[in-house]
């Protein structure tokens, strides 16, 4: 069974009297452990689709099911709980709570999950070491570089053992070298922990890393290409 099922989904935005169909009858199934990129030009609906998969927004028609949970049948609070337990998020920027240190940002999500203190500390330590931030545990976000901030964001997305990590342009603000390192790191996580990664991107490098590329165009799926290894 797929971990993410998107079935005939449409999303319409209203802006004043104007309406805009950002997604038009999109269907997509993602299996556990995939490393998949949603590609397409700006405005093609990548972020919109990612938000629907994350349960941050609801479609106007069609349905989105995450790990057997149909968002349309859930309340706002239940969707929040599901995100907490099953999803990790990495955004393009401003991923971190500015008043918390790197370690506290990562620990925060474990606190929300009511994980015991001793276990929290140990998991936070090891994940921050894993993403290469041994020295920066106690730095605030504004004391970290953009790449380091994104690493903390990845650490936070991963630390809660989610089924799926949704990453919206995670490399867009990074130079290519830093971006490549971040992607390599996520690839390792994907392989080691069998976490599913879904990217929204127009970064060529991300597509090179991805094992499957779904192309969107004007809110429709224009191509779905699996790379065989």
């Amino acid at each position: 069974m797929s971990i993410v099922e998107v079935e005939e989904v449409s999303k319409i935005y209203h802006q004043g009297k104007m309406t805009f169909k950002a997604l038009d009858d999109v269907s997509l199934a993602v299996d556990k452990g995939e490393f998949i990129a949603l590609a397409g030009p700006s405005g093609s609906g990548k972020t919109t689709l990612l938000n629907l998969v994350g349960g941050l927004d609801l479609p106007d028609s069609g349905k989105v099911v995450l790990d057997g949970n149909d968002y349309s049948k859930m309340g706002d609070g239940q969707r929040a709980d599901l995100r907490l337990e099953r999803l990790g998020f990495v955004f393009q920027s401003y991923n971190l709570i500015p008043v918390l240190t790197a370690a506290e940002n990562v620990e925060y999500i474990l606190r929300l999950q009511n994980v015991e203190k001793a276990e929290r500390i140990e998991r936070v330590q090891s994940i921050l070491d894993e993403v290469g931030l041994q020295e920066k545990h106690n730095s605030r976000p504004d004391e970290l570089s953009g790449g380091q901030q994104q690493r903390v964001a990845v650490a936070r997305a991963i630390v809660s053992n989610p089924a799926v990590v949704l990453a919206d342009e995670p490399t867009a603000n990074l130079d290519s070298k830093t971006g490549e390192k971040l992607l390599e790191m996520m690839r390792v996580m994907n392989e080691k922990r069998q976490v599913t990664f879904i990217f929204a991107t127009h970064d060529k490098m991300v597509m090179d890393f991805a094992r499957r590329i779904v192309s969107l165009h004007d809110g429709k799926v224009a191509g779905d290409q699996k790379k065989d290894e």
Binding site: A80, R83, L112
Partner: peptide, 15 residues
């Protein structure tokens, strides 16, 4: 606002 949005996204209930 953005911070609150982020917190909601990572799974915090609005209450």
């Amino acid at each position: 606002m953005r911070e609150f949005g982020l917190q909601r996204a990572i799974g915090m209930r609005s209450s």
